[in-house]
Design a protein around this nucleic acid. Structure first.
Lengths: 159, 159
DNA sequence: TGCCTGTCCATTGACGCCCATGGTACCCCA
DNA sequence: TGGGGTACCATGGGCGTCAATGGACAGGCA
């Protein structure tokens, strides 16, 4: 498995350290990345985190804009400029800096949320409400898809 | 046979483990997936479960949205973020985490229900009533189809 | 000198892995 | 066709390992 899936919430200790879930660590290791690449998520109170796959995706995103264009500069600043590469200690823990914690409103606990090629770091309470909202949207889309099936293409069976 | 069919109900042991029905296991093995990919079913108190085929379906759903778009992030959180890849022990058993059990209202027994390319995990009592309702719908639909069959094609298997 | 950071070790509780058992359905052979 | 044997499957339980967490200790920088 080379995707980040599932979610867990872990606590920060008195020194501000937090364990990266073992499952996520193994994905990072398979990805060949030592440490944790992360930056404040755009437009939401969370932190994007991952390894080489995430970095490559960002690079591809920025490369779509012509060199020296204003968009490119802005994207580069917003993503690269705010990125950090956190070191992991021998037990697989990291410490977030103040900027990241402030952005996500993190105090003493963290929700790790797998998103496939990357994962996000949330303040647990905020994640709960975000998840409720997201679930509602997915359900709405499912209904929409369901109404198209039969009239249009129907790839494999569907619930 | 590479489809999940039929239904059985099995019991959880004192450690919370439950055997995946041997027939389902063999389908998973043929699918080349080690373990069990699963997530809370949308809009119903059940758990969707399967292997690579199911994961590919989720991936396709998310891939419809551009990277870093808000929709994609939310969908990924709702789908990947609530997914689990459960490990199977040497005897083909898994243990469900609390989130999944709560969602489906599972206590000490499980109904495994084949749905073709995936299967669902239900609390047995709830499944009985769900099945009764579904049977009624199918009967109604069959009448409807009967008038169309011959004029139309019947698309792939469906729940 | 004092604090922050990185490294190392200890604890404990959960989980993975292994072996054992009982029951059942199927098969083979008389 | 019936009886015995066998193989597979669901289930139970023991035990070792690993993950999450807490804390001690040694540099390095201000």
């Amino acid at each position: 498995m080379n995707r980040f899936v599932s979610n867990v919430t872990l606590r920060l200790d008195s020194k501000g350290r937090v364990s990266i879930p073992a499952h996520f660590r193994s994905v990072l290791a398979r990805d060949g990345f030592d440490g944790l690449y992360c930056y404040p998520a755009l437009g939401r109170p969370a932190i994007d985190a991952g390894g080489n796959a995430l970095m490559a995706e960002i690079e591809a995103l920025i490369a779509r804009f012509p060199p020296f264009s204003e968009e490119r500069e802005q994207f580069a600043a917003a993503l690269y400029g705010t990125s950090e590469t956190l070191k992991m200690d021998g037990e697989g823990r990291v410490v977030l800096n103040e900027a990241l914690k402030t952005h996500a409103g993190i105090k003493d606990a963290i929700a790790f949320v797998g998103l496939g090629h990357k994962f996000q770091i949330w303040e647990p309470e905020r994640f709960r409400s975000e998840l409720a909202e997201a679930t509602e949207k997915v359900r709405a889309l499912k209904v929409q898809l369901g109404s198209r099936v039969g009239a249009q293409d129907a790839p494999g069976a569907r619930e």
